[in-house]
Simulated scan of single mutants.
Amino acid sequence: MLCPRLETGNSSGNELVGLHLATALALVVYFWQDWIRVIRGVSTSITQRRIQTVDRGSPG
């Protein structure tokens, strides 16, 4: 187990919050390009009142 304190139940709420924040930060860092695309898409759909799908090509 990576965090033995979590297994015993002796962890404080602050440690759990820190663990969740670190996980969220890791996901944002890893998927930053996808987040930029999502933010741009939402912004475009709000300002131009249209939804446009961009073909990213075939997977693989």
Rank of each mutant, 00 (worst) to 15 (best):
N10G: 02
R40H: 00
T53E: 06
T47E: 11
C3P: 02
S12L: 01
N10D: 10
T44R: 14
L16N: 01
G60P: 05
V17S: 00
S11L: 05
T53L: 13
F31C: 00
G9R: 03
L2A: 14
W32Y: 07
V54F: 07
A22V: 06
Q48N: 12
Y30M: 08
R50Y: 03
V28Y: 10
G57N: 14
C3T: 13
E7R: 10
L27T: 07
D34H: 01
Q52F: 04
Y30K: 12
D34S: 05
N14A: 06
V54H: 13
L19C: 12
R49V: 08
G57Q: 13
V38N: 08
V29P: 01
T8R: 09
I36P: 01
C3Y: 15
R56W: 11
V29L: 12
T47V: 15
A22G: 06
W35T: 01
P4D: 12
T23S: 09
H20P: 04
S45W: 02
G13Y: 04
Y30V: 06
S11H: 08
L2T: 09
A22F: 07
T8G: 03
R40Y: 01
S11T: 01
G57C: 14
L27N: 14
E7L: 14
Y30H: 11
I39E: 00
Q48K: 15
G60D: 11
I51V: 14
E15Q: 03
G18F: 04
P4Q: 08
D55P: 02
L21V: 06
E15A: 05
I46N: 06
M1Q: 10
R5P: 08
V28N: 02
E7F: 09
V29N: 05
G41T: 00
L2E: 13
S58A: 14
A26E: 13
S11M: 04
